[in-house]
């Protein structure tokens, strides 16, 4: 088995196309795919001020590096790395140290906001009394802060490191939970209609698998191990992830097929749920957008964090 392009020794075999690539050809392939996603879906536009959601993990580190590389020389585009410190001992503290060093090396402005400062408790402290699934509360609090802080930074876009695995899991989770309306908010650029309360989220790694992102991060020398959040195995997403990986192993291309078929129906979904988006309210406590009188974050603050 040799590289399809140059006959050098391969480092990866792409599951979707059965093509093997060497280190140099793979790096070119990966970067070309990210640029194509940005171009096809107009993820980055003139005068954009992009907040890049970073954790110090492989996906957001690759994202940060590539956005910086792609916009090089563009004086009209500004980027800021935006990190949320949930307060997960021995996990987030380590990844944020890595992120600080990475941003310093690549001369990228970094802003870090913490649950402790914003909500008065770290996630570890919250989980001492909260007995639900950790990712449920953590996801709500993190998304809330990312949206709020992006607005404070006057960002026009919020870039996230969501990859093809993340997205295929979300599509299947929404289907399994009879929550197809949530899928109308997915896609390479999120949102159904323009609403100034929501910063549009862009996903330049949308068409790359978790393994492909890890391969790029390893080959570029960013990291040689990929830590999993200690709370992740307890999530519903964790079960769906394992199921999809098992299917992918037996039937290569499964995850790509989920994304391809979803993208075909996505315009119909967005159109169908436009009316619901019009009905989005503002939380009576914090003014952030929500579907009820009080947003989920404020409900967690009152019923879990302050309790």
């Amino acid at each position: 088995m040799v590289c399809k392009n140059c006959r050098e020794k391969p480092v990866i075999k792409l599951t979707n196309s059965n093509i093997s690539l060497c280190k140099n050809c793979y790096i070119k392939y990966f970067e070309k795919k990210v640029k194509k996603t940005i171009s096809d879906y107009k993820l980055i536009e003139k005068n954009d001020n992009i907040a890049i959601a970073c954790s110090g993990g492989k996906d957001s580190t690759v994202l940060l590096y590539l956005i910086k590389k792609i916009i090089k020389g563009r004086k009209d585009i500004k980027i800021t790395a935006l990190a949320i410190d949930e307060g997960i001992h021995n996990y987030r503290d380590k990844s944020l140290e890595f992120l600080k060093a990475f941003c310093k090396k690549h001369e990228i402005e970094l802003k870090i906001f913490s649950y402790k400062e914003e909500f008065s408790k770290t996630l570890d402290e919250i989980l001492k009394t909260y007995k639900g699934i950790p990712c449920s509360i953590c996801g709500v609090l993190r998304r809330y802060l990312l949206n709020k802080k992006s607005k404070e930074l006057e960002a026009t876009k919020l870039a996230t490191g969501h990859n093809l695995d993340d997205e295929s899991q979300s599509i299947i989770m929404n289907m399994f939970k009879n929550n197809i309306k949530m899928s109308a908010r997915l896609g390479p650029i999120t949102g159904i209609i323009k609403d100034e309360r929501f910063i549009p989220r862009i996903k330049p790694l949308y068409f790359l698998t978790e393994k492909e992102v890890a391969t790029y991060a390893f080959l570029k020398g960013f990291m040689d191990k990929f830590n999993e959040c200690p709370n992740s195995p307890y999530s519903y997403r964790g079960y769906v992830r394992d199921m999809l990986n098992s299917l992918e192993s037996k039937y290569p291309g499964t995850k790509h097929a989920i994304i391809t078929s979803f993208l075909e129906i996505m315009p119909l979904l967005k159109n169908h749920y436009k009316k619901d988006q019009d009905a989005i309210k503002s939380c009576s406590l914090c003014n952030e957008p929500c579907s009820q009188e009080i947003c989920k974050t404020c409900q967690y603050i009152e019923n879990v964090i302050k309790a």
Binding site: M1, K13, G57, K58, D59, P134, C135, C138, G139, D166, E210, K211, V213, A214, F218, D224, K225, F226, N227, E228, C229, N231, S232, S235, R237, G238, R241
Partner: peptide, 19 residues
């Protein structure tokens, strides 16, 4: 497809992250 011998130093790295 890579062939292995007893002299090789092999590492298996998990790529799973996030929650």
């Amino acid at each position: 497809e890579e062939k292995l011998t007893n002299k090789d130093e092999i590492k298996i790295l998990s790529v799973i992250s996030g929650g």
